[in-house]
């Protein structure tokens, strides 16, 4: 290994690296660039040169049209989707937390089978289970209702949430529970006042996993809430709007921008938590 040999090798690696990183930058940023630029351009300018920035023609008109569109409304969808995310998150934690606590703290075989019972749910694809869910909801009188959708969404978030919580609670020393019990705290109190505050990392992971899942979910609201219900999430609003006007790019781009913007902002702001949360959720769940 002489100097003459290792020198060009050391230089050749950065060349590959630079080319690959340039490719990555272009391929990943061009779609976002097109989305951003074309949301402010008239149809003709988009058709003439989608990559161009015609300074004279840029306008907020189409974005404002999208905000005020009466038929389908992404901004209106924000409200309902945020409502859905918050309600499902809260109910999921309220149900999964205590259940995971009992499972994690029990040494009984039967309780461990309960964990397997929940885990089996992660094997069921949403697109497959949503059809029979309609008929179950119909049987209990919740077909086509927001309550029905919330109930289904909470049920679908339970398996992974409980699994992650059980794993985390088992790392918390049981001595803490015993100390609380000796001080006279019941199991509910012990869980919510003593154990739950210690579960912060797992709770953050579950919240991120579920929030992004519910925000992006399309199948459940599409199938469980008919258009007649008047409730649109961001995804079903986009679906209703764009399937109608797919050739009118002045409607497509601004609506997509409105749908993507909050997620991108949230991602930039919470990047570290989101990446680790989604990774843990996928690998362990």
């Amino acid at each position: 290994m002489g100097k003459a040999e290792s020198a060009p090798r050391r230089r050749s690696v950065p060349v590959v690296k630079v080319v690959m990183l340039a490719l990555l930058t272009v391929v990943m940023s061009v779609p976002v660039y097109l989305l951003l630029v074309n949301s402010f351009k008239p149809q003709q300018a988009i058709a003439d040169n989608p990559f161009g920035i015609p300074l004279g023609e840029l306008t907020l008109r189409y974005l404002s049209d999208a905000v005020h569109s009466p038929q389908y409304n992404v901004i209106g969808g924000y409200g309902f989707t945020i409502f859905l995310v918050v309600v499902v998150d809260v109910l999921c934690i309220a149900l999964a937390g205590p259940a995971a606590y009992v499972i994690a703290r029990s040494l009984r075989r039967r309780t461990q089978l309960l964990l397997l019972y929940f885990l089996a749910g992660t094997f069921i694809p949403g697109a497959a289970v949503v059809i029979p869910v309609i008929y179950v909801l119909r049987a209990v009188g919740l077909a086509n209702t927001v309550t029905g959708l919330v109930a289904h969404d909470v049920a679908s978030t339970l398996p992974v949430s409980i699994f992650l919580f059980v794993g985390f609670i088992r790392t918390i020393p049981v001595d803490i529970d015993h100390a609380a019990a000796i001080d006279g705290a019941g199991r509910y109190r012990t869980f919510w006042r003593i154990v739950f505050p210690l579960m912060r990392p797992a709770v953050v992971t579950v919240l991120i996993l579920n929030s992004i899942g519910i925000w992006n979910d399309f199948v459940s609201p599409q199938i469980l809430l008919s258009p007649g219900s008047g409730h649109y999430t961001v995804t079903t609003a986009i679906y209703a709007g764009i399937s109608q006007y797919s050739t009118d790019l002045t409607k497509v781009f601004p609506n997509l921008l409105l749908a993507v913007a909050p997620v991108i902002v949230f991602f930039i702001y919470m990047q570290r938590h989101i990446v680790s949360g989604l990774t843990v959720g996928a690998v362990k769940g």
Binding site: A96, G121, V129, A155
Partner: peptide
């Protein structure tokens, strides 16, 4: 009381539909 609600909801809306 702590596991019941989660088991019931999951059963009715995931297991029963299967």
């Amino acid at each position: 009381g702590m596991v019941g609600p989660a088991v019931a909801l999951y059963t009715v809306l995931t297991v029963v539909p299967v």
